[in-house]
Nucleic acid binder design. Structure first.
Lengths: 339, 339
DNA sequence: TTGAAAGCGCTAACAC
DNA sequence: GTGTTAGCGCTTTCAA
């Protein structure tokens, strides 16, 4: 940068006090006479002083920033992140918590092996005080790498066995059961499901929860097709399902985007929703309300979960909480027009 | 953090050399005997040394990071950013350029007045060596603030008058003309357009370019409805257009998402595309190929533009280029099924 | 080719 | 309340 701006020293000289006093004023420490505070502030404004963060971090060992990391291993990673409202909701939940404490949020994307290595290196060199991680794949090595690097870390989703870090999570099996029981109660007996990719952290939890609930009612065979969380993949999955299992009367999909795609396809094929086939989504994202018919869906309070994730990390940084605190949220079924 | 890890000093002692020598090895400076390099590297590995970025920045005045800033003034900002593939394309273009030079990319979002202020403060305190800015609104104050703060800045889109910073841009009027001439050449005489919000940087350029081209052919009245870049707003705009101007035979929309919405609505109303109404989009995003019919669209090479933006900044940081270098790209018309 | 030493700008004891 | 002073961990002349 070459940003040779004025320093504390300059302000001190200008205001006729010592560096220490200026530092106290800048950092809002009490024990400074009001009139001196005043003159220091004036001096700062007059010469346009800005603290040097590097110098500050060097002694405090703090950066005042927290990283929000989106990590995945597959291809077209950014394409997914920037077309699924889910991540926007996470950001929406995290930002206010951090802003309130004047912590600078920085978004980091780890889209490849190399990127992950660079990112960990960056963070352990002091790029941020802690990390909030949203892993898109079950076996993402990043959380372990971060924990191993000694960085305070909180995950969106349950950590793998042995990873000692904080997390927030949704009770996914419970959510899937909610969907299943609702379908059962409304008379559906031949359900199918559009599941998440096997690599998604929540995939099997939702799938198994759904199956088990129906199994408990004696329905043991539930067809499954995998989607990729996108509207388009939902359409394709629905096409497969309809072709291979024409008798189904209900569909449960692992997120609202796929559910929307499924509905689109059903409509185009002249299959009435919910008349012939009832449909239940997951997340309760904006897509759920924009779809026609509006989607019955399992609500995941993403913003609140993200906010909790940020709060957990901040409290850990303040030393007010252990590094492995967790918070699990309960899903709620939102019944709309698709069932 | 409290990350009291090993320091240069420790490595020096371990390897039996001076701090200066270790520093040279770490920074890849020549003039270090091979055997000494070897033993220093061993020592580093043995004690697990990581350089402290704050200490380094303090003397070099460099952070080795570049910020990619998404800035907007309106509501539901994150909802838009994380559902429009456009931003993913920008990220896709920027990342490889930065990674190649081992520069850490950090994404910053400026979603409010307060956020913008914090962000500028963060950056001038040395949060990054430079900024790549994608302003979503015409009158975004952020670029000026950054330039005023003395931060090397490159914009996606032309800067406002008097802002002395680098930029990349698309020749938007030319793109709109491409669309108009194509529609004219294929016999369309009653065009309408779904424009961007008046606040969008490119809105009037695309709108005027389109109008002027048709005006040159004697078609002086072109109905306009404003959308908000989303599929849904495209649907609504199309509904308005069809209601108020039932005679139109062509539609030009300011991005592919709105175009997709327009097509959906037309289909649902039983209006054939391109039979009765021809449709042209803008961007050539993935949406263009996923829509049915596949969209004829004005291609904006977003990834290449973003890569150029990053390159411009990096060259400026290297001192190899002035701070006001610009690069303007030419659009191309991609003819598919919707015209 | 290597080492000694001087800071980069700031905070935090510790005196006064 | 305020000033003095000693570093934080690193890069970079300058000598040797």
């Amino acid at each position: 940068m070459g940003n040779r701006g004025p320093t504390l020293e300059d302000v001190a000289r200008e205001a006729g006090v010592s560096r220490a006093t200026v530092s106290r004023v800048v950092n809002g420490v009490r024990n400074v006479a009001p009139d001196i505070q005043e003159s220091v502030r004036e001096a700062i404004a007059r010469i346009g002083y800005t603290p040097n963060q590097a110098a500050r971090s060097l002694v405090t060992r703090r950066t005042g920033t927290v990283a929000l990391v989106l990590s995945a291993t597959g291809r077209s990673f950014t394409a997914r992140v920037f077309s699924d409202p889910f991540f926007g909701r996470v950001v929406d939940g995290v930002l206010p918590v951090l802003r309130r404490r004047a912590i600078q949020p920085v978004l980091l994307v780890a889209e490849s092996e190399q990127a992950r290595a660079q990112l960990v290196e960056y963070l352990r060199q002091g790029g941020a005080d802690g990390a909030l991680v949203v892993p898109l794949d079950e076996n993402d090595p990043l959380p372990s790498m971060l924990v191993a690097a000694g960085l305070p870390t909180v995950l969106f989703g349950r950590p793998r066995d042995g990873e000692r870090c904080g997390y927030v999570d949704l009770d996914n099996p419970a959510g899937a059961r909610l969907a299943a029981e609702h379908l059962w109660a409304t008379g559906r007996r031949r359900p199918a499901t559009i599941a998440a990719p096997v690599t998604a952290p929540t995939a099997e939890e939702r799938l198994d929860g759904f199956r088990e609930a129906f199994a408990a009612h004696g329905v043991t065979s539930v067809p499954v097709v995998r989607g990729r969380f996108t509207v388009d993949s939902g359409r394709r999955a629905m096409a497969r399902l309809l072709k291979d299992h024409p008798g189904i009367d209900a569909v449960f999909a692992a997120n609202d985007l796929m559910t929307q795609g499924a509905c689109q396809y059903l409509r185009e094929q002249g299959v009435s929703v919910p008349g012939e086939v009832a449909v239940v989504g997951f997340d309760d994202s904006v897509a759920a309300r924009k779809a026609r018919p509006q989607l019955t869906t399992v609500r995941q309070p993403v913003e609140r979960m993200a906010a909790a994730m940020a709060t957990l990390l901040v409290e850990q940084l303040d030393g007010a909480r252990s590094g492995t605190a967790a918070k699990v949220f309960e899903p709620v079924l939102v019944v709309r027009e698709s069932t």
